[in-house]
């Protein structure tokens, strides 16, 4: 399906990212790029450094050395909220929703960065503050419609089943109208139908909002189906990079996943 897709310029360029915890090297000079509008997958065995890579991209971990350029702006180390305001949103491997809040509030929180009225206006709930609140409510409702979670709008998310929580998390990330969306195992722990739904949402997001998507996923059939290009990490090193077909044919990738026979 991906043969005829056209992509724009490089939106994210990651060069020589290294990160270590204590003496353990989590990432060792990894470089890759992401084009505007593509679906880019990062795969690799457990402990390969995939989540750490995402954490570096949105500034949560501070790599020891690296150049990460987003939309041409290069940052050595940035704060996480900077990454958010530049248009990077993400979801998490272990759901990181605000458990005590309703679905609607979670989604609205995704738009917090765009809301500027200070607390004095808010405490009055009057004039500009109301107008702002209602504008953003409309935008949030569009996301809620898009992901078909209208019925759980006012439910506290801590009480929702796992699959729905994952969807609410995606909604929260989408509400920020990001240019690039980082998804950390969006389909982990889902059954087949839920996975199909999630794939559909991811592709829809990519198509309708032309959001660039970087995702980590363990389900190879999903990765091979929906991604345009794949990066493979193993023990913190990049061992392959290319289209799904290229990666699948790569001997090092096969070795990393299946193990190498030692004679």
């Amino acid at each position: 399906m991906t043969q005829e897709r056209q992509f724009g310029n490089t939106i994210l360029n990651v060069e020589n990212v290294s990160l270590s915890f204590g003496g353990v090297k989590a990432l060792d000079s990894v470089s890759f790029d992401v084009l505007e509008g593509e679906v880019r997958a990062i795969i690799g065995p457990n402990g390969a450094g995939k989540s750490s890579m995402l954490n570096c991209i949105n500034g949560f971990y501070k790599p020891t050395e690296c150049t990460i350029a987003f939309k041409g702006e290069s940052h050595h180390q940035m704060e996480t909220h900077q990454a958010a305001s530049m248009g990077i949103a993400r979801t998490f491997q272990n759901i990181a929703l605000f458990k005590g809040m309703t679905t609607l509030d979670n989604v609205m929180t995704g738009r917090n960065l765009k809301m500027k009225k200070n607390f004095l206006w808010q405490s009055l709930y009057f004039g500009p503050a109301v107008k702002e609140e209602l504008e953003h409510r409309e935008a949030a409702e569009r996301v809620i419609d898009f992901l078909e979670i209208e019925s759980i709008r006012k439910t506290v998310v801590g009480r929702l089943p796992y699959g729905l929580q994952k969807r609410v998390e995606l909604a929260r990330a989408l509400a920020a109208e990001p240019e690039m969306l980082l998804l950390d195992e969006p389909m982990a722990g889902m059954n087949h139908e839920e996975k199909e739904d999630m794939c559909r949402y991811i592709l829809d997001v990519n198509e309708q909002f032309s959001t660039t998507i970087v995702l980590i996923e363990h389900d190879m059939s999903v990765v091979m189906d929906i991604s345009d290009r794949v990066v493979v990490l193993d023990y913190g090193e990049k061992i392959a990079d290319g289209t799904p077909d290229e990666v699948r044919a790569n001997q090092r990738v096969v070795d990393a996943y299946l193990g190498v026979k030692h004679d």
Partner: peptide, 16 residues
Amino acid sequence: MAIRDMDVAAEIIGIR
């Protein structure tokens, strides 16, 4: 509430 429920996630979606 975002800070209360999960401060790390709050920071990542842009709450200082």
